[in-house]
Simulated scan of single mutants.
Amino acid sequence: MSTITTEIIKELRDETGVSIMQCKKALEDSGGDVEKAKVILAKQSRAAAEKKADRNLGDGLIITRQKGDQVAILVLRCETDFVAKNDDFIKVANDLTDMALEIGIEKTKEAAQGMLDPLVQKIGENMALGELSILEGSPMGIYNHNGKNVAVVVMMGGTADLARDIAMHITAMKPRFLSKDEINEVDMENAKAVFEESVADKPDDMKAKILEGKLNTYFKDFTLLEQNFVKNPDKTIEQLLKDNDAGIALYEHVMI
Rank of each mutant, 00 (worst) to 15 (best):
I20H: 14
D33F: 09
K10I: 07
L12M: 03
A47E: 14
G31E: 07
D33P: 04
K52F: 03
G32S: 03
N56K: 15
K36H: 02
R13Q: 08
E15P: 08
C23V: 00
A53E: 01
I20E: 15
S45G: 15
L57Q: 03
D59R: 12
L61G: 00
K10S: 10
N56I: 11
I40L: 03
S45P: 15
L61D: 01
K36W: 00
L12N: 02
E11L: 15
K25I: 03
E50C: 00
A48V: 01
I20G: 08
G17D: 01
V34I: 13
R55N: 09
D59W: 09
K38G: 10
E28K: 13
K24W: 07
G31D: 06
E11T: 13
D54N: 14
D54V: 05
A26N: 09
S19W: 15
D54R: 11
A42T: 03
S19K: 12
M21G: 00
N56Q: 14
D29C: 06
D59K: 12
K51H: 12
C23M: 05
K52V: 01
D14H: 05
D29Y: 12
K24E: 01
G58A: 06
V39G: 03
S45A: 15
V39D: 14
I40N: 02
M21H: 02
E15H: 12
T16D: 13
M21N: 07
I40P: 03
E50L: 09
S30Q: 07
I20Q: 13
E15F: 11
A42E: 11
E35W: 11
A47L: 11
D33T: 02
A47Q: 11
K10A: 15
L61K: 08
G58S: 07
R13D: 08
K38I: 03
C23E: 03
M21Q: 05
S19F: 13
K38L: 07
N56C: 06
L27F: 10
K36N: 04
D14R: 13
Q44M: 14
V18M: 11
K43R: 12
K36Q: 04
G60V: 01
V34R: 13
L61V: 02
E11A: 15
G60H: 04
S45I: 09
K51G: 05
T16I: 09
A26V: 05
C23W: 08
C23T: 01
K36A: 04
K38F: 15
K52C: 02
S19Y: 15
G60A: 01
K43D: 06
A37R: 06
V34C: 09
A53V: 01
K24R: 13
K51A: 10
A48P: 03
I9A: 03
L41E: 06
R46M: 14
E50G: 04
K38T: 02
A49N: 14
K38S: 07
E28Q: 12
K10E: 12
L27I: 00
N56W: 10
A49H: 11
